[in-house]
Design a protein around this nucleic acid. Sequence first.
RNA 1: GCGUGCUUAGCUCAGUGGUAGAGCAUUUCCUUCACACGGAAGGGGUCGCAGGUUCAAAUCCUGCAGCGCGCACCA
Length: 889
Amino acid sequence: MPEISKAYEPQAVEDRWYQFWTEKKCFAADPASAKPPFSIVIPPPNVTGMLTLGHVLNNTIQDILARRARMQGFEVLWLPGTDHAGIATQTVVERTLKKQGLIKHRNDLGREKFLEKVWEWKEKHGGIIIQQLKKLGASCDWSRERFTMDRDYSRAVAGVFVDLYRKGLIYRGKRMVNWCPASQTALSDEEVEMKEQQGLLYYFKVEVAEEPGTFLTIATTRPETIPGDTAVAVNPKDPRYARLIGKHVLRPLPSEYAADRKRIPIVGDEHVDFEFGTGVLKVTPAHDRADFDIGQRHKLPVVEVINADGSMNDLAGRDLAGLDRFAARKAAVEALGALGLLEKEEPYKNNVGYSQRADVPIEPRLSEQWFLKYPSLEAAREVVASGKMKFHPDRWAKVYDHWLEKIQDWCISRQLWWGHQIPVWYRQQNGKQEIHCDVEPPTGAGWTQDPDVLDTWFSSWLWAYETMDAATRRKFYPTSVLVTGPDIIFFWVARMIFAGFEYMGALPFHDVYYTGIIRDKQGRKMSKSLGNSPDPLDLIAKFGADALRFGVMRSAPLGQDILFDEQNVELGRNFANKLWNACRFRQMQGGETEAEIDPRALASEDKWILLKLNVALRELDTAFTEYNFSAAAQTLYRFFWNEYCDWYVEASKAVFFGTDEARKGAKLAVIDFVLAHTLRMFHPFMPFITEELWHAMGYSAEMPSDQGGVTIMNAPWPKPFDADFLGHYGLDDCYLENVDAQFELVSQGRNLKRTSNVPAGRKVRFILNPRQSFSAQEVEIFKLLLNAEAFELKSEYAGGKGVVSVSTALGDLYLPLEGLVDIDAEKARLLKEQEKYVLEIRKVEEKLANPAFTGKVPASVLAEHQKRLADWQSKFEHVGKALKALDDL
RNA sequence: GCGUGCUUAGCUCAGUGGUAGAGCAUUUCCUUCACACGGAAGGGGUCGCAGGUUCAAAUCCUGCAGCGCGCACCA
């Protein structure tokens, strides 16, 4: 057995085992396997992205599920890959090329050359996040790594487009879309984030053309769009303005226009809320969704005054043309002021749509785009509503349902170059436009392909099956569970469900587990601009991957956001070190590891720790069933640290520091049993250290090669003990209670020593007036844990002069101090205790005196209360005696 | 506005009807041969507020307040 170091050093261990697992092909999924399947597809990270704590959380959970399933005997597929992240990647590459001074705009290169640059970038940076996931210990089947722009995957995306086009679900149309002036592309509704703004509401006057001298006042947040106004609307039921409908007003901007070019009609429209502002609405059909609708109803012209990049065009007039839309707003206000038409401006809070990616306000814009009417809506809605597909936590099912209820067609075209180009070609033939929609380009001359690409999500919605070949699908589709963040429930989860039903005829996964969102200590979202996102690789270098995994799991409550604190990782590191040292302690005791546990040799504390192990195994199973990873981590922590190390190991020293070799052997057998279980229970959470110890402790040598002999990854997942096992080893629950009481006695004895100001190092004599018999070993343990010179059992003993004492469940415990006792301090302590007992006794007595209580309560509760009363009374009496003894001094 | 979640020790959180818990922080003590990334013993909470149901409420119900998130075309 090799020596192991005093402190665990993860850096020396992690890379070595990862390489070992890879070489032994431990992560490979075999579609021909006879084992039952368990499968997960990774939420593909951005190919040029870097690992974040969000990825750590998400992928640790997936790895835990995958590793546990392997140990449980499933054939596991965890399928990895990346997506091309259209806007994000294109923006990064374009910005980098600009910074290098190579281009001013991607047009300088042209589409083909620019895409070559993006591919170069992808080749250079695309592997980074994959390498980072490996550092974390992710047990993905890397031989199956996929990318959404792979050739076959791309053909499949095009194929789906063609299919949906032929089904009439995809169509092209000129519509109001969310336009991002920074990226200069259309976005889907989901990519728009509403943000509350502190802005201004401007009130300006317009003159009624037919009634010179009559003015209407209009309130607006966007005066820069006045040149694009083609009407003014009032509610036809509004008595203030109804008579004016059909007349005209003179639009104040552009100011240089002559009166006849300024005339725009006053229309009546129910949309106008006469409570709001002045009840008069300016209508800009080109730059506002609601106004566009009003425009359609009244056949108003659409006048664009804002360019694609957010600047004003010539139609905006000399005051505004060429300005950015926000500079134009100021200029418009100034122009109105100069015309004497600005009445007032007041502070106003409103919600403005922002481009999620570029973080600039969206510009509603009329443009020609491709749209999808979602397929398989009913099946997708039903499967979640009925509970056939389970969401964890299940409240997300309602969010999903609400979204489906008012679902809108999906704008799928993007004015980008990086992505799947739309498989549609056009040509003019005999004055008519021909359209070719197919995976294969058309033959013949004169065709041009639609320049737009598809939304990235239009490729990743096929991820759950398009990443698999036919044999893999047969074995592993539908997948077992999807682990992702609730922020992409609409973007990805919902759409994968549609695609699953439409193209596989079945749901893509059975369970969806939504993680929390990682925030910083102050509760802020992690963001690059705030610089509050620690680099997981730094944390791994500092504390180890296992520590990071365990720390994050332990602090990730079910379905709640996670406030990240490096201390959690430190705690994980400390825990790993504890595990390490507990194994080190075992090794230092020597002996063989093959020993079987002999039921006849089991002492009470041995049975206790086996029963505690069983409790932990049950709790662990429950936690997994509920996807409650923090509960699982806490169970492991409590069992190993607070039960095994704090009590069992300490108690075992009574045997190891003795000379009875037979008893040492029996103890080692129990320790090996517990440690071999512990390592396996921990393996999904802390794969590296458990593998290292599994071998270092020699446990691998005891197992068949496919059952843990080669790697702990294949060792059987420990199951709670069955009745045969419990019976064979005589594991009766009474040992839980009794040994708990023994350890409680030790705590009380230590407390007695401490409150009596006995120096910690000083050896003292304890005397117990016992309520039951104790084995010699139990007495030895008392003596050791109390650091006592002697631990005596005297059934007649009642203390006396200079003796302090405490009542325990196992009898009264005495500590003779031989004149050391500070009588006043001891008296104060006892009086304080007595006070507490009186209070507790009164509380229980009151309950028991209530006939409504005794009459209605279940027998077990009643018995428990009676026992509680007896316990308090016994303690009370004991304190009384002790006080009397002090008085007698 | 609608929906949804949270409010328990200084901090972060467990705890779904029966004696209020953990980790961190804090106080005191201990470098005793697994571990100072450690050990021992403490202190600290009228469970956001107000009602209700119940023998019994942190827990169930109602209302309110504060914070967060999602959805929503009031200019």
